[in-house]
Amino acid sequence: MLHTVNKSPFQHTTLADCARFLRSGDVVLLLEDGVLACQVGTLHVALVEGILQRVAVYALGADLKARAITELIPGIQVTDYAGFVSLVEQHKVHAWL
């Protein structure tokens, strides 16, 4: 399952909610305001690191660039829209809107 998360973890519990439903082999894609979770030195680093220990986490590069996020929590993989499509090829999708 590909889980897409588009909400800031500072304003919504969406990423933490999503984390409870992850299974081995699943993937999380952070996009839109969801990429705000990628930053180092924030309140939510432990949440993201906990997710990284269980599944792969991707972040959409266009959204990172737009928000001037350059330093990412280690382990997060940056992808583009083609990479997003590739993840959709491999997985069914649940959007955590």
């Binding site: 399952m1 069914k92 955590w96």
Partner: peptide, 15 residues
């Protein structure tokens, strides 16, 4: 149980 059921779906609509 919900996660397991999700994995069986053809697709999922979010509301």
């Amino acid at each position: 149980e919900i996660a397991a059921l999700m994995a069986e779906q053809h697709s999922i609509l979010s509301f």
